[in-house]
Nucleic acid binder design. Structure first.
Lengths: 335, 335
DNA sequence: TTGTAGGCGTTATCAT
DNA sequence: ATGATAACGCCTACAA
């Protein structure tokens, strides 16, 4: 059933193998009648071109590989969507791998894709060791880091500026009248979290304000709620009047704590800014103000840059950094 | 850079091409010294086996294709994870395609995977026309429907029983003392929604109760909140004492409405059951009772069944149906 | 317009 | 244990 090759088609249609190939690839160079005849045979026999053979012959595969940390994470889901759009436009297929933040699995996908001879590899590395990717790059598979700075590694990258994001959040809180802003997030060792905090701290200091830091430990609703309950319990004179949360889930938790408390309201008693602008942010009880990362754009740009580097011949690496955007909703006061 | 084949390796190591192949595939059948020598050359030259050539020669592809409606949806993310686990165990690679509920894009992936000669295809079809998949199946690519009944089509499938899920939810609400249960969900034309409602209705009638139906139009938090506000506004004598929601987002919306209202509480005034048991069901203000679908199991079983059908020779199709499970939390009264 | 033939990189079958 | 060699299915000059 599955073993229908051009040979069978050719025999069935009474033409040569080369003609069948022409029908498949350059139909305009074939006489209408043979075209019809061959197409008839093709569908009758259920011929499906063998990608392996085609690729072996032509050298390249017309596909890209994308390896993300967690396909279920809305941020990466958007990145993937953007990448897919760009691939669609370029006539390429996007192969998606989910490493689950596991370096071993990531390596498996990188190898797999390299063996498939993909036209390029987009990776958000799980670990800090980029040597494997550098190797793949040197061996001829163009590599692009996604949401990860290359550091000293010689690789291209597309990232979003987390320091700018933190600054943006504090800008807004301060413009809304906050005189006692705070930061909620964790673990503080995570580069993204640390950068967002750094930007926020800088901006607060610029305004002559301090920035109290609450380490939530992890980035979940429950962790945020715990910190929120702690904040709600503080005496009014010491309590922050605004919080910048390292991601939206934490922000949702903080909001829950405020709402469950008796008497306090958002944003009057506590203004809240989240990060990521997940879909769910606009449907929290008080719609959440959030810093949005241009995730789709990130994916799209990663693909486009990769392709342009490829066609331009490997003349050095590109390192692009995007700036996030503040989405204002009702969890903060207008400026 | 990229054009390192076994030939170069063989030349560099001073052996034949066949020996290099042995080193790569059956190292135990090669003398330790040649093995070392060849491996040395391999890493020195950066040789990466060409999957296309290997597959062309051997016929096997060692990969499966999975096409989902929305990779960002937690349900499908879990399905994908389960499938990936099963593939890992079987030494296969999982190629993931996201159709975005677009039949055209789905078709593209199906074709792509068929051309790649994947060992099998797992698909949640976007449309109602299964003829393309039947064709692929007939042409030799084993196909398995995921979360979709084959209807009259001759295909294998793995699904979760939505009627049973609806029954389960009502079982629990009635056992908790509900005498005026209601259903919130929509669009009612969606098979999943309709089946859940059917099961719930059946069970309510069994208990001699009615089941008021609120059509939420769509399955979002905001749609649920709108219905929730409507329910909260009803006079106590007519108001439902419990609602079964077609998915968790709707349930969250209803819960928000109750909590925003003054005076009503969950579960005392209104018990709430959701569906899907998404990750943050346990971090809603009142932890949400929900009907959980065995999504990972679904993915894993789909892969395993596919592989077993394949090795057993194509002796008919399998149609498996799983039963969902109720996860009890605080949004409903204990039984 | 159509047919012929060489070769892409690998595996597998034989010899050696 | 290793080497030589014929496919695998397709593309593409080139020839007819």
């Amino acid at each position: 059933m599955a073993k229908v090759s051009m040979r069978e088609v050719a025999a069935h249609a009474g033409v040569s193998i080369g003609t069948v190939s022409h029908v498949v690839n350059t139909p305009e160079k074939v006489s209408p009648e043979t075209l019809a005849k061959v197409n008839q045979s093709i569908s009758e026999l259920g011929f499906v071109p063998n990608a392996a053979a085609r690729q072996l012959r032509s050298g390249r595969s017309s596909s890209l590989g994308l390896v993300v940390l967690d396909a279920a994470n809305p941020f990466f889901a958007s990145v993937a969507r953007g990448a897919q759009d760009a691939c669609d436009r370029a006539g390429l297929a996007l192969l998606l791998g989910d490493s689950g933040t596991d370096e071993r699995r990531e390596g498996k996908y990188v190898d797999l894709f390299a063996e498939q001879r993909v036209n390029g590899l987009l990776v958000t590395p799980a670990g800090s060791d980029l040597s494997g990717l550098e190797g793949a790059s040197r061996r001829g598979t163009p590599v692009m880091l996604v949401d990860r700075e290359p550091g000293s590694a010689s690789l291209s990258s597309v990232t979003v500026d987390n320091v700018a994001g933190g600054r943006l959040a504090l800008d807004h809180l301060i413009a809304g009248g906050s005189v006692r802003p705070a930061f909620v997030g964790g673990p503080l060792t995570l580069p993204q979290v640390a950068d967002r905090l750094a930007g926020a701290t800088l901006r607060a200091h610029d305004a002559g304000l301090g920035l109290e830091v609450f380490d939530s430990g992890e980035q979940t609703i429950l962790a945020g709620r715990a910190v929120g309950q702690q904040i709600v319990a503080m005496p009014r004179s010491q309590r922050p009047d605004a919080v910048f949360c390292a991601n939206d889930l934490i922000a949702v938790g903080v909001m829950q704590a405020v709402i469950m408390s008796s008497g306090l309201t958002v944003p009057d008693d506590l203004a809240i800014v989240g990060y990521d602008d997940i879909d769910y942010a606009y449907s929290t009880i008080v719609p959440l103000t959030s810093v949005r990362q241009p995730a789709e754009l990130l994916g799209r740009t990663a693909v486009e840059t990769l392709l342009s580097e490829e066609s331009a011949g490997s003349t050095g690496h590109h390192n692009l950094r995007f700036t996030p955007e503040l989405i204002m909703r009702e969890s903060t006061k207008p400026e």
